[in-house]
Simulated assay, not measured.
Amino acid sequence: MGSVGERIKLLRLNQGLSQESLADKLNVTKSTISQWEIGKAQPKNKNLLSIVNFFDTTYEYLKGGSEISDTCPRVVSIPYYNVSASAGLGSVNDLETYSYVDIENLNVSNIEHLVCITASGDSMEPVLKDGSVLVVNTQNKNIVDGNMYVFRQDDFLRVKLMSYEKNHLRIISYNKEYKDEIYNFSEISDLSIVGQVIWYSTKLNVN
């Protein structure tokens, strides 16, 4: 079926690219491309992401799966930060290390602006359960009424719905046990928008 290096070489040749040209596109050296193709080195996660996006292919194909087709799910690799956005009364986040997580069928063009974190608490239930995975577009910081955002408030990272109203900002929980929060525009400077939640995966309660 072909190794990762052989698949990269095939994709490169199909587009008529030299090793040097592909290296320029991926911001690596020609030697790196050569080592990938002959199997002396494997692309790191961030480079796999660049390859998948540049050739509009899938991880499954690179790793020996079937030929690329319109029915193949598109998989993207997104930085997954070891922090939680509180869907409750607030969560302090001091440690921000990250790995990568693969997500299928995420149809966005600005993948470099996406990050993954988890939600904690119950204020966004039933939509977000405690431990739900969130994909946040850090490029979308302008509030659109009714959309979900992750934001910093003092030392806390939170996730809520947001809506502009006359002279104030309303912060809303799905869980009706939590009252809406109202902030005058003069108080909004205390809030820092991290980005808009564009995808989430919620755990099911299984008995």
Rank of each mutant, 00 (worst) to 15 (best):
D70Y: 05
I51L: 15
Y81D: 05
S69Y: 01
N47V: 09
F55R: 02
V75N: 14
I78H: 06
K63L: 13
L62M: 10
T57Y: 15
V52H: 03
I51C: 13
N82T: 06
E60I: 09
L62F: 05
V76N: 15
G64R: 03
D56Q: 10
K63I: 01
N47W: 03
V75G: 14
D56N: 15
R74E: 00
P79R: 12
K63R: 15
T71I: 01
C72D: 09
P73F: 07
D70T: 14
V52Y: 00
R74V: 03
C72I: 03
I78N: 11
S77W: 05
I51K: 06
D70R: 08
K63W: 07
S66A: 15
P79F: 05
I51H: 13
S77Q: 07
V75T: 11
P73E: 08
Y59G: 13
G64E: 00
I51W: 02
Y80N: 02
V76C: 07
P79C: 05
S50G: 08
F55Y: 09
L62T: 10
D70G: 06
Y59P: 13
S66N: 14
T58A: 12
L49R: 08
I78P: 04
T58K: 12
V83I: 15
Y80C: 05
T57C: 13
Y80W: 09
F54K: 06
V76A: 07
P79D: 05
P79G: 15
S66L: 14
V83G: 03
T58M: 12
V75Q: 11
L49I: 08
T58Q: 14
S69H: 01
T71Y: 00
Y80E: 01
L49K: 05
L49S: 11
V76W: 04
L62G: 09
Y80T: 03
V75E: 11
D56S: 04
P79A: 10
N82E: 01
E67W: 06
N82Q: 07
F54G: 01
N53K: 15
D70H: 04
T71H: 00
Y59Q: 14
E60W: 10
Y61W: 06
T57K: 11
P73W: 02
T71F: 00
C72N: 15
K63C: 03
N47E: 06
T57L: 07
V83T: 12
R74M: 01
V83E: 06
V76S: 08
T71E: 05
Y81H: 03
S50K: 15
Y80Q: 10
D70K: 11
L49G: 05
F55Q: 01
V52D: 01
Y59S: 14
Y81W: 05
E67V: 07
V76Y: 04
C72H: 08
D56Y: 00
P73T: 10
E67A: 10
S77T: 09
P79W: 02
N53W: 05
N53A: 04
R74Q: 03
V75K: 12
D70C: 07
G65Q: 12
D56P: 02
S66Q: 14
G65E: 08
V52I: 12
S50Q: 10
N53E: 09
V76Q: 13
V83Y: 03
Y59A: 08
I51E: 07
V76T: 09
L48P: 04
L49Y: 01
T57P: 07
Y61G: 11
V83W: 06
N82W: 03
L48C: 06
E60Q: 14
T57M: 08
R74P: 02
F54Q: 04
K63N: 11
N47A: 13
N82H: 14
L62N: 14
V76F: 06
Y61F: 08
